[in-house]
Structure formats: structure tokens, C-alpha cells
């Protein structure tokens, strides 16, 4: 059988909020090491890679590897039924046709069970090579959210230009243009507020606002976001999920026609 328990259902709620605008359905691969999801949006422009390690769960048991196709919108609806302080347990039997979500209140006086049918899915798996990136920038996730939102008003895409001094985000359109420069923070006293630039080569890349504004929905998961960039390759936008894992978004750049 498969059973995974998290004392804080809020973590799983936030994870669903972070993927539901990009994915309608996804396969959850469950094994001894944890739960993994790799799924592209319908247009194959972005990819979500979610990793939740088994040791991050409060209880975890997976007797045999399972691939469970799930409707993200249905899962999201179910998780909205969990109280903020509830514990969540996911349970499935071997060769399952459904998965059960069990929510338990902190004082254990309320127990709610929701069963969700699994779906058969053809899945396309992409081999993503381990790459060293020309620029890796760490910055507060709230700042990144704000920049994507603000610059989206000016155009359909945002250009990221990174040098050793910092990173510049810019957008332009019919009404005008805007750019925001962030300098690397001199002292990293406050880790959550730090902007750290690790640059081997300067990069300049352009990305669609629509996808970036989906990625920033992961902001509530982590105070910092990490952007990994090389010229003419997909962006990696990573948010840590506490001590349990991470969510990575890959986004194909806009390239010269």
C-alpha cells in the first residue's frame, strides 16, 4: 500500500495552488524515495518538476512503485476542503483506481475522507540534462512576484539581463517601457532579503509574462526564489518546499524569429 502523511496540509494546499494554473492533470510517481511529478503544460512551453522526499513526510510508506494520474483541478478542490491546521494523509492500495485524502483536525475530533478517481494518462517524459548555468540569481520571492506583475502591464514578455552587478528586468509595449534593476546585496545579514548573483557569463533572455505569472504562485512556499539562466536555453525557476523538497519550473525562452 501507499500512505503519506503530512501534519501540515497547508504545504500541500500551497503546492496545488502553485501548479493548478499550468496543469490540468499530472502523473504522481510514488516510490520509496518520495513523490515526483514531471508535467508540461498543453503548449509544451513550460514544465513543472515537483519533488517531495519521503523523509520530509511525518509518515511515509510505499510498498511498490505507483504511477497515479490525477486531475489537478479535482485535487485542488479536495484540498480546499482541508482546515488550515488539519493533518493530511494520502492513501492508495496497490494497483489503485482511486486515491483517498484523509483530513484530521488537530484535536482529532473531525475526520474527513475524500476519494478521488485516478485517470489513465499518456505521459511524455522529458530528459532534462544536469547543466551548469551562466547565471544563478537568488532573490526574495515576493520581489520576483511584484516585478512579474508590474512589468506584465507593459508587454507580453519580460527580458532578463544578468551581469555580475545584478539583474535587470525590462518590458516594452504600445504604451511605453519599464525596467527594474536589482543590485546584488552587499551584506547578506538577512538571508530572506538577500539578492545573490553568481555569474560566469552575462545572459540576456526573454520570457512570456503569462507563464512567469503562473510560476510566482509558488511564492507562498518559500521566501526565496532561484533563477538559473544560460543564453538560449530554458529558464529554471526554483522554490524550496520547506525541508521536504522543491518545485522547479522550466520555461522555454522567446527566440529571434
Amino acid at each position: 500500500m501507499f500512505e503519506a502523511r503530512l501534519t501540515q496540509s497547508a504545504i500541500l494546499k500551497k503546492v496545488l495552488d502553485a501548479v493548478k494554473d499550468l496543469l490540468s492533470e499530472a502523473t504522481f510517481e510514488c516510490s520509496d524515495s518520495g513523490i515526483q511529478v514531471q508535467a508540461m503544460d498543453n503548449a509544451h512551453v513550460s514544465l513543472v518538476s515537483l519533488n517531495l522526499r519521503s523523509d520530509g513526510f511525518d509518515k511515509y510508506r510505499c510498498d511498490r512503485n505507483l504511477s497515479m494520474g490525477m486531475s489537478i483541478s479535482c485535487m485542488s478542490k479536495i484540498l480546499r476542503c482541508a482546515g488550515a491546521e488539519d493533518t493530511v494523509t494520502l492513501r492508495a492500495w496497490d494497483s489503485p483506481e482511486s486515491i483517498v485524502f484523509i483530513f484530521e483536525s488537530p484535536n482529532k475530533d473531525k475526520l474527513a475522507e475524500y476519494e478521488m478517481k485516478l485517470i489513465n494518462m499518456d505521459q511524455e517524459h522529458l530528459g532534462i540534462p544536469e547543466t551548469s548555468y551562466s547565471c544563478v540569481v537568488k532573490m526574495p520571492s515576493a520581489e520576483f512576484t511584484r516585478i512579474c506583475r508590474d512589468l506584465s502591464q507593459f508587454g507580453e514578455s519580460i527580458t532578463f539581463a544578468c551581469t555580475k552587478e545584478g539583474i535587470k528586468f525590462s518590458a516594452s509595449g504600445d504604451y511605453g517601457s519599464a525596467n527594474i534593476k536589482l543590485a546584488q546585496t552587499a551584506d547578506a545579514d538577512n538571508e530572506e532579503e538577500a539578492i545573490i548573483v553568481n555569474m560566469q557569463e552575462p545572459v540576456k533572455l526573454t520570457f512570456s509574462c503569462r507563464y512567469l505569472n503562473c510560476f510566482v504562485k509558488a511564492g507562498p512556499l518559500c521566501n526565496q526564489v532561484q533563477l538559473s539562466m544560460s543564453d538560449d536555453v530554458p529558464l529554471v525557476c526554483e522554490y524550496k518546499i520547506g525541508d521536504i523538497g522543491h518545485i522547479r519550473y522550466y520555461l522555454a525562452p522567446k527566440i529571434d524569429d
Partner: peptide
């Protein structure tokens, strides 16, 4: 003018 690329331009299907 820039056009949107897709991930399958960069990553191989496995």
C-alpha cells in the same frame, strides 16, 4: 520580433 520556443526544442523525450 521574437517567437515562443517550446521545451521539446531543448529537451529530449525519454
Amino acid at each position: 520580433k521574437k517567437k515562443q520556443s517550446t521545451l521539446t526544442d531543448f529537451f529530449k523525450k525519454s
